[in-house]
Design a protein around this nucleic acid. Structure first.
Lengths: 355, 355
DNA sequence: TAGCCCCTGGACAACGTTGTCACCGCCGGG
DNA sequence: CCCGGCGGTGACAACGTTGTCCAGGGGCTA
């Protein structure tokens, strides 16, 4: 009684506000043993219909709901998985997250997710918080490059699958899109349409996908025997200001690029804006973007993209995760999903005739 | 030993795979008491630097990580909140979810979220699962219209805030956008530009926002003394097929509508597609959409929209939730956030001169 | 030097559930 | 009539942590 707030003592004579009935309360009210309540709640066999009815009545009368915290502590499994990604608000990650959730749901698990905001420290903090909660598994879109901090957790049985980018300095399952191949295809496509001076606007070079896409760009250029000017490549944060500046510089150079390859959806959108704002040139600048985005087909011209199915990425990763949780052993696997070039017009524009 | 997998017995002599060290193990290894370990782990005062060092060493040596399940059970607070929305993959909910997450993070809480897929049963299932986990609070974008099932949970202390749509048949906090006002503004805007026959393409009439937007449409029309033909209003699922059919019917009628008001972002996008696919009419059809969406400004014409800030919606709801959790009392509140008309061209198109 | 207090550290119960095991009464068979 | 078995039920420990309480020792003051 001593820790009962004075004001609430009279309002709820039987139990304090915020205190919920437990199985013990239900048992007492139904006049049965604790374990019998447990059996009823979990649908275990071995309870007379009459007893069950009495217990059910007590449950509804008291508004009892099983405390899963205690259940989890006892059983050791939390039936929940963690998802750490860069930014839930990014249209690329929404479908991915939803796909992971659907798979989790099919396995009766809940999804706890957090955004790292591309900050390695925040990623680690989040991941370890999830480990402390003893999630059964983790799906991680890594922001950092060193995941050795995860080794003890994985050794302790927390299944982990990396998505979109591989783990750093540890061996772990990963599900990736074919950034190199997709990028190569895009640049080759532009070259096939006659372009020789192609600019690449990419994400921070430390990000695995950005590096791979740059590699694909270089590979396609060199396969075609084309030189790459330093001024044609710009890597950095994807905020509109930087992209805008970089794109403008490439387009206004003495020998301007005739085509642009944008390294991800945010960059593509900014480039579209930049191109739209410039006075219409005699020959429009060709553009291909990595990642598809809604309405890309409705712009004029439609934006040619390298599409990767982010939902499929998430689904594949979650499937792999649950296979691991179901006991699938073997060495860490790396799955690479293909990308697809969707021509819509902007990537098929020819270079100026003079070029 | 009997339940140790044969292959792992030799690899981990001291403990089975999947079993983690506990504070007891740490205490034993450090040669201190259990509670001392607890003090170190939680940064509580009253431990000599030397003792603390020994404990820290034992912690890293064993790879110990506090089991938050047990902590939660003991403390009664989970430091996590649940978010139930319709579809994480929807660009409207991504920013909302992210905003809720940020607020939660600022309060040291994790976010568990789930998609109801607009299915009341699934919503209830999810919400109750979250209650069983004893989340501290809930942010709900309701799919159903009867939330009496939540009453016992709320009485037991789970703070709950509804977003985007109010709760059904119970009294609860709600944060809404001004659907009626925004809708009214949109239609008035079209009327001001000379339109008399305006079509409304809305979501399922059971959804609160859809009903409110319809109400705003009717209000604006009747204020202007304009009649509303049955054929000008179409409510239903927002899948492209239905919207396409409905829009086409309105546009091909004997007395076709000269302007369309789309009830949400999915509808707007489909309508834009429909209009783009039709042979260009002498006078283009005016269009205003509820919800802003990326690239709306880059289409030609730009799409005039009624913008509601979904991130702000989420932030406001989460703020309110944590104020409740911090003990703020008082009656349930209903906050209504304003919408904003953003003219971009499509809503300013005049009707045909003959009209 | 005696007495007291503070500081550190540990023993123990409790959180609410589930798994194990034992008990009770009743049945059929010997 | 007794015994074995079985279906139904409950007592009890354990999961890993935190809060409460107490003990012991060292330093300080009177």
């Amino acid at each position: 009684m001593t820790d009962t707030a004075p004001g609430t003592a009279n309002r709820t004579p039987t139990r304090r506000y915020g205190t919920r009935p437990t199985m013990k309360d239900v048992a007492a009210r139904a006049g049965v043993g604790l374990k019998t309540v447990s059996r009823v709640v979990n649908g275990e066999p071995g309870v007379t219909p009459d007893t069950e009815r009495r217990v059910q009545e007590a449950i509804t009368a008291l508004g009892f709901r099983r405390n899963d915290s205690a259940r989890i502590l006892r059983k050791g499994r939390t039936a929940s998985i963690g998802l750490v990604l860069e930014d839930l608000a990014d249209p690329f990650y929404g479908p991915l997250s939803r796909a992971v959730e659907e798979v989790a749901r099919a396995h009766g698990a809940l999804l706890i997710n957090g955004s790292s905001a591309e900050d390695p420290e925040r990623e680690q903090e989040l991941v370890l918080a999830l480990c402390a909660r003893r999630v059964d598994g983790l799906v991680i879109i890594p922001a950092g490059h060193d995941h050795r901090y995860l080794a003890p957790e994985m050794a302790a049985g927390i299944a982990t699958v990396f998505v979109d980018r591989p783990a750093g300095r540890i061996d772990a399952d990963a599900v990736l899109a074919d950034s190199f191949g997709g990028s190569h295809d895009a640049v080759a496509h532009l070259i096939a349409h006659g372009h020789r001076r192609i600019g690449f606007l990419g994400d921070l070079p430390g990000i695995h996908t950005a590096a791979e896409r740059l590699r694909g760009y270089h590979a396609a250029m060199s396969e075609a025997g084309l030189p790459v000017h330093d001024a044609w490549v710009s890597l950095g944060p994807t905020d509109p200001e930087r992209v805008r500046t970089a794109a403008t510089a490439m387009l206004d150079a003495a020998e301007p690029v005739t085509a642009l390859f944008a390294g991800n959806n945010r960059v593509t959108v900014t480039v579209v804006r930049v191109l739209a704002e410039r006075p219409a040139p005699a020959t429009p600048v060709a553009l291909i973007g990595f990642d598809d985005f809604e309405l890309a087909d409705l712009l004029s011209p439609g934006i040619t993209v390298i599409a990767q199915d982010s939902a499929q990425l998430g689904r594949t990763a979650a499937d792999l995760l649950f296979r691991r949780l179901d006991g699938a052993g073997g060495d860490p696997r790396r799955l690479v999903l293909p990308t697809r070039l969707i021509p819509r017009g902007s990537g098929e524009l020819p270079p100026p005739a003079t070029s």
